[in-house]
Design a protein around this nucleic acid. Structure first.
Lengths: 221, 221
DNA sequence: CCATGATGCCGAGCACTGCTCTTTTCTGAG
DNA sequence: CTCAGAAAAGAGCAGTGCTCGGCATCATGG
């Protein structure tokens, strides 16, 4: 292997290592407390050296954001694939997997679905991974329509969605807005639980989540 | 008036003034960029003097959080009171008022409904104001049941809520979880819109919001 | 009417942050 | 083996939250 290849490999390895340490810090202390200098210290390098790999703290955060989206998306996809053919069961499994991932990785979840960081504008590298859970959810709906378990007639397209979105997901236009709403409400549920808003209100969060999510499966009418 | 009274009055005034400047900074730059020193500078006082009024930056944030909850709650209450007797219209008006307040005060909203700040645990002074929107929403449901527009039969209480919550809000147990879900989903909608998750998906956010919220009014069955 | 103790305020300072610039060290390609 | 270019280091800047000792001010008790 050429030396240039060696250099690039070493570089990629160190980049990954930095991101890994950063993720560990994020997981224990949260995004606000993530310090580039602390990461550098743990790696035994000067803080300025880290800037060779991530031009700024925000770029490091962006990498972690993409990772978080991907991990959550992968969990949802795995849950969807592992679930049986029953549509409602699969829907529930996917939703549960999202909640469970969030509970297991609260800070990474907050980084992605909490308030956006200060002057941060999501770069387009995040839009793909960000959509994975939504894709899994809509796939369940599409399959439900195919098996007849979901009724796709009745509702009309109110034109609120960006044209083409429903088609891209394979959804009938009549169900587009409903599906997007289900996706939104799913993360609303997770947000409220994780951020403590249901603290003195909901006793059995898992049961409440299951019941709410079951009613979320989009159908016509 | 006694001198002690004067002192306390001046102190309260300055406390309020600090909070006001802080809120202005928060509104323009977001919570992460809120600097106690910058607030002190604008007030023409030493940064250390501010600590006589707010023991820490977190305490300042807490004051702003309470204010934000109160402002949002007041907006919802006003909208509920101003709306006509029609239940669906009132429900829509209250939900819209929450969305509009959030759009008008994005950083204050994010402070309250976004990711919790690092080591921050919501003190109990926030739990009252935090519930105001929920109270307004449930009041609409209660009134809807009274007028017969909302059917409160059918659903069973699944015991997921903290015992007594539904009763406290005047809701039948059968509708408790539904109402809490509507509240959760409402803020899920606002969150996704405000934090940019629906950016390439929803075109007409207001129309989407109205349609989604209309379907959220809890009923039995 | 004055001394006194509390209260408010300031300035310096500590430890930390992100980030930049310059200098040194290393290493891999020719 | 040499040497350009990549990597790393170190110092430094401007900013942060927060603490502490000292100084002024002011309401009150003697």
């Amino acid at each position: 292997m050429s030396a240039a290849g060696t250099r690039a490999r070493v570089r990629a390895e160190l980049t990954r290592e930095i991101a890994e340490v950063a993720r560990a810090h994020l997981a224990t202390s949260g995004a606000a407390a993530l310090s580039l200098r602390a990461v550098a210290r743990e790696l035994g390098m000067a803080s300025s050296a880290v800037y060779r790999y991530f031009p700024s703290r925000d770029d490091l955060l962006t990498a972690l954001i993409v990772d978080a989206y991907d991990a959550l998306g992968a969990a949802a996809e795995a849950a969807g694939a592992a679930a049986g053919p029953d549509i409602r069961a699969r829907w529930l499994a996917v939703c549960r997997s999202a909640r469970e991932w969030a509970l297991a990785h609260p800070h990474e979840y907050a980084l992605v679905y909490g308030s956006p960081v200060p002057g941060y504008a999501a770069p387009e590298s995040t839009i793909g991974p960000a959509g994975r859970v939504g894709v899994v959810l809509s796939q369940v709906v599409v399959d439900g329509i195919a098996t007849g378990e979901i009724d796709a007639t009745g509702s009309v397209d109110d034109g609120a969605l960006v044209p083409g979105v429903a088609e891209e997901l394979g959804l009938p236009a009549a169900l587009g807005a409903r599906a997007v709403f289900a996706w939104t409400a799913l993360f609303g549920l997770i947000n409220f639980e994780l951020f403590g808003h249901t603290h003195n209100i909901v006793q059995d969060s898992a049961a409440y989540f299951d019941a709410a999510v079951a009613r979320l499966l989009p159908t016509g009418s």
